Simulated scan of single mutants.
Amino acid sequence: MKDKKALKLVGARVRVLRKEKGLSQEALGEKGGFHFSYIGQVERGEKNVSLVNLAKIAEALEVNLIQLFAYVEEEMKITPMDRSIQEIVDMLREANEEKMKLAKNVLKEILKTDTSS
């Protein structure tokens, strides 16, 4: 069913993030206040999980809520440019405000077009 596609994609993203953190379904469930079987249902796209519960899962995974929606569909091709952009975004997410401003200014200078020629 088409309407289940978003559930499966978000669930798959939860699974990837959970494994990246080295957590079992049980450990993630404990951190978020859920039964491990609920986490399994979410990961398989079987539960129409609420936004409140997604926020709790994101907090338990120590990621921003938006990162649960940063999935890539299987049929999409990831280019080296896409990977580089994602790496830059990931670095910026971890930067403090001062470093963020500095990075923004550096990027502005690097990407500025030369109008003198």
Rank of each mutant, 00 (worst) to 15 (best):
A27S: 07
R15V: 01
H35N: 10
I57L: 15
N96H: 10
V16N: 01
E94Y: 08
N48K: 11
E26K: 15
K99Q: 12
L9S: 04
A55I: 08
K112E: 13
E94G: 05
V106D: 00
P80S: 06
M81Y: 15
K4W: 01
M100W: 10
G32P: 03
L9C: 01
G33I: 09
F69A: 10
V49K: 06
K31Y: 05
A103W: 08
I57A: 08
S24E: 00
D114N: 14
A55Y: 10
V14S: 07
Q86V: 10
N105I: 08
E97W: 03
V52P: 00
S117A: 13
E43R: 09
A95I: 05
M76Y: 05
L111N: 06
H35R: 10
A27M: 02
K99G: 00
T79R: 13
N105S: 10
S37Q: 15
T115R: 10
F36D: 00
E30M: 07
Q67E: 15
E109T: 14
K21D: 01
G29I: 06
L65N: 02
L51V: 13
A6M: 12
E46F: 05
K19I: 03
R15P: 00
L65K: 07
A70F: 07
E59L: 05
K8H: 08
V49T: 15
S116W: 06
N48D: 12
M81L: 15
R44A: 15
V72E: 10
I88P: 00
M81H: 13
Q67M: 11
M76N: 11
D3P: 00
V52R: 11
S50M: 05
N64H: 13
S50H: 04
A6V: 09
R18N: 02
V72Y: 05
R15Q: 09
N96Q: 03
L61D: 02
L68H: 10
K21L: 02
G32H: 06
N105Y: 09
R18G: 00
E73W: 02
N96P: 02
V52Q: 08
K108I: 13
T113N: 06
G33Y: 08
S84T: 09
E43I: 07
T113Y: 07
K56N: 09
L17K: 11
